[in-house]
Design a protein around this nucleic acid. Structure first.
Lengths: 141, 141
DNA sequence: ATAAATGCAAAGCATTTGCAGTAAA
DNA sequence: TTTACTGCAAATGCTTTGCATTTAT
């Protein structure tokens, strides 16, 4: 199911398919780089020179509410966006700050004594560390 | 080892014990509410009316570097701080936004095919859901 | 036709920084 | 006495918002 369709399976909020939104969706589709709003703006505004920051943010918020993209809060400096809304985790490289996908392994659960009192609607593992290329540089230094 | 000592086991960076810092450490010690910088400022400035925001931030950054407090990035709006630097996880209530501790259960690991390429220095599970009191309200609504 | 989206500029917060004065060591 | 910290205010950076105009439906 492409996220460009007017309706989504999940939240089902319909939204207008404007050229700007399609351009953002186009950039996002299949993108595994976990871009920030600024990354998206810089890339998409090359082709749509009229694109504004407000539109990028409005679109991302709309898509997030519709369940078409996922907001990632692993980086304290800014939000990142992921078109892959399936359950998976992330690793952020503490050197270059790039974010990498980590496939979902064993599912994460609350300890038994909390499970009765809390309702869990989602979970996410953040890994901190060094990516392959920064790991190499580190050893040399 | 109390975090008020001039040196910490971990990073070992010494720092001056000023009254402002002692007041912040005093507020933090044993605190499980995961306060934001603003929460800390509001509480500590009641007793130390000269306390400034810059000092709160400077102190928190110093303590974080020294390994005496942990920055929590579960809330996209602001950072939260945790004096408990032992390995544990968190749940944020999507209704009231309060953060709760989740004890560390099984340790989290990268899948085998990534483990050889990445160096993991830390990990953290974020749970999203409803706390007991917001869960009750939700059912009634 | 009508409800919603765009784009601009301004506003809003959280956080950082420069710097002169002050205090811990 | 020297080095580091405080406090203020200004600055920065990310994100949101108000509003007049434009556009998808």
């Amino acid at each position: 199911m492409p996220i460009k369709s007017t309706h989504t399976k999940k939240a089902g909020t319909p939204f207008k398919r404007t050229p700007q939104r399609l351009a953002i969706l186009d950039f996002l589709e299949g993108n595994t780089s976990h871009p920030s709003a600024d990354d998206i703006y810089r890339s998409v505004s090359k082709k749509y020179q009229s694109m504004s920051f407000a539109t990028v943010y409005n679109t991302l918020n709309t898509l997030a509410k519709a369940g078409a993209v996922r907001e990632i809060t692993i980086d304290p400096k800014r939000k990142h966006y992921d078109p892959d809304t399936s359950g998976h985790h992330h690793l952020i490289c503490v050197a270059c700050e790039r974010i990498f996908d980590v496939p979902e392994g064993i599912s994460v659960e609350l300890p038994g004594d909390m499970a009765g009192d809390f309702i869990v609607t989602g979970s996410h593992i953040e890994f901190y560390g060094y990516c392959p290329s920064c790991g190499k540089k580190k050893k040399k230094a």
